[in-house]
Amino acid sequence: MIRFRADLPFERDQATRFVPWIVALMVFLGALALAATTAVGGAIDRWDNNLSGRITVQVPADKAGPKTLTRLAETLTETPGIAQAEILSDEATRALVEPWLGVLDSDLELPLPAVIDVETEAGAVFDVNLLTDKLTKIAPGVIVDDHRVWLQQLIRVARTVEWVAFAILGLIGLTAIAAVIFATRSGLAVHAAIINLLHVMGARDAYIARQFQMQAMMLGIRGGIIGSAAAIIVLILLATMSAGIDVALLPSAPLSLAQWPLLIIVPIAAVVIAMATARVTVLRALAGMP
């Protein structure tokens, strides 16, 4: 571990023992939160591209005669805000359910509902209930599936997850700041005699504060290394796990290759916060000396 030659014998301080661990926790959670945010952000983008602007209308198999379907499609196309309505072929419908039901034997007499794929105009707002009523008159039992509502909820959940992650990170950050303040204050008390001596020799407050800053930097770096290492291990595990599962809706990998370097920001931020906290704490305490 890197050392610096301090005028103050910090290595005997008890109160600093737990600082690296709190910083490590902060860095660990910070890295995970950052990874989660970028991953969720990426997933949301993909959902937006894939799903937005689409409504699916399902017609029960027994009502799905060609005439009914055509009338439904016409009604839909006439509705303001709808750009296009396409009756999916039997094969296309089978392909849709494949992820859930597996490859279906086309001879199998499983009554699949007919599906009309509706493309909405950008930014169009619908009353799905109204639309459903209108369509029910033509074909009782239709189900209007507005992905956008579902997607909006999903996005809301994802954003909430992000906020919670950052709120927890913020709390840990505050805990780390409190820990550094506590360690610094107790350091000031433990080393009061030497600090007094340096003061009397003509040391400026900044000189004494620098000693504590360097100490905080060392503790921060120690915690940063531990926390980053733990986060990297977890993220690599997640990446290899999610590589095995191909689920379109889930974030594919926690971080893309280009995003990994972002993680260095977290420990650096932690070290800077620790140093700044120590500096401010010392300067405020020393301001009371003659």
């Binding site: 005028d7 014998p9 005699a193 001596l197 009397v200 020799m201 003509g202």
Partner: peptide, 22 residues
């Protein structure tokens, strides 16, 4: 207060209990 360090540096003190840093 910021000018006092400069004055203190022109004073040498031999303390009764020496106050060396161990």
């Amino acid at each position: 207060r910021s000018e006092l360090p400069h004055l203190r540096r022109q004073i040498g003190v031999v303390f009764q209990e020496f106050r060396l840093i161990d």
